[in-house]
């Protein structure tokens, strides 16, 4: 009796290849640019949040997204759309209710996870390049098990996007009545991009229709899923674009509020 099947014969060894990686392309470039980009953005955002100044343009009702909704005692009268609830201790940001959730939404985002696991945590820095750590348990234990909470931060991000949209609408109503300037365009552009990023989230794609087994029984949800899937393919680009639009919007509002530049007005 015989068989041509190879029988298991105990553990063999892997090929003894001395080089840690044999990649010849610039595999280090993507993680490097990610570290530079994210570090620069976080540094800018931290400085801006703790400046506690130049966040509101009284003449045109521009409010920067980094200070929205403004809820500390420091907030100027016009900017505090939701009341002044928190004390004005310097360590409390003006947008103390929203910034932590926005941070957690991006921190647990499936794209950002890829970005920072590769670039900051080197796990792995690039494909077929060795992990920078001796042991690895992935997202099976605390604290990384918490990445599974992404969908809750998505729900929070939807509410925050609504607040940002409200800010952009209010900015059309300045003390002189209806007004429209370059600042409005920037605020609207930022909000549109924020919505695109938020809706393109993988959790949103799942909730909106991905969890269904039979698309044919839910035609509307299937159409919504198809649209979100189209956006979802661009999630990485939207993640970076929104970092850019957030910083640009904030910088523009700061520059106008500090009288460094005048706002370009089209109407009023």
């Amino acid at each position: 009796m015989t068989s041509t099947a190879t029988r298991p014969r105990g553990a063999r060894a892997r090929a003894a290849i001395a080089a840690k990686t044999l990649r010849t392309d610039r595999w280090w470039f993507a993680p490097l640019i990610t570290v530079v980009g994210l570090t620069a953005w976080v540094a800018y955002a931290t400085v801006r949040v703790y400046l506690h100044n130049w966040y509101w343009v009284e003449d045109f009702h521009y409010l920067t997204p980094f200070y929205s909704p403004c809820i500390t005692d420091r907030c100027v009268e016009g900017a505090a759309h939701f009341g002044r609830i928190l004390p004005d201790w310097w360590i409390i940001p003006e947008a103390a209710f929203t910034l932590p959730f926005l941070l957690l939404f991006r921190l647990t985002c499936y794209y950002y996870r890829k970005a920072y696991y590769r670039s900051f945590w080197l796990s792995p820095p690039a494909c077929a390049v060795p992990d920078g750590h001796q042991t690895y348990s992935g997202e099976t234990r605390f604290p990384l098990l918490g990445q599974n909470l992404h969908r809750y931060f998505f729900y929070a991000a939807v509410i925050i996007s609504l607040i940002n949209s409200w800010d952009a609408v209010l900015a059309f109503h300045s003390p002189k009545g209806f007004g429209f300037g370059l600042g409005n365009l920037i605020l609207i552009g930022n909000v549109v991009m924020l919505w695109a990023y938020t809706i393109s989230c993988h959790s949103c794609r799942h909730i909106i229709g991905g969890r269904l087994k039979h698309f044919s029984k839910h035609p509307l949800r299937y159409r919504a899923w198809t649209f979100v899937s189209w956006l979802n393919v661009r999630h990485m680009q939207l993640a970076w674009i929104t970092l850019g639009t957030l910083a640009l919007t904030d910088f523009y509002v700061m520059a106008v509020a500090a009288d460094w530049i005048p706002d370009l007005r089209f109407i009023n």
């Binding site: 499936y110 996870r113 890829k114 696991y117 590769r118 796990s123 792995p124 494909c127 077929a128 690895y136 348990s137 992935g138 997202e139 099976t140 990384l144 599974n148 969908r151 993988h202 959790s203 799942h206 991905g210 969890r211 979802n232 393919v233």
Partner: peptide, 28 residues
């Protein structure tokens, strides 16, 4: 154990979106 670094998708010769269409939906 998967931490979504997407190397599987990068190397797939059939261009299957392993992470976005398979692993992430299963995680969700």
């Amino acid at each position: 154990y998967c931490n979504i670094t997407k190397c599987c998708t990068e190397v797939c010769p059939e261009h299957i979106k392993i992470t976005d269409n398979g692993i992430i939906p299963m995680k969700e």
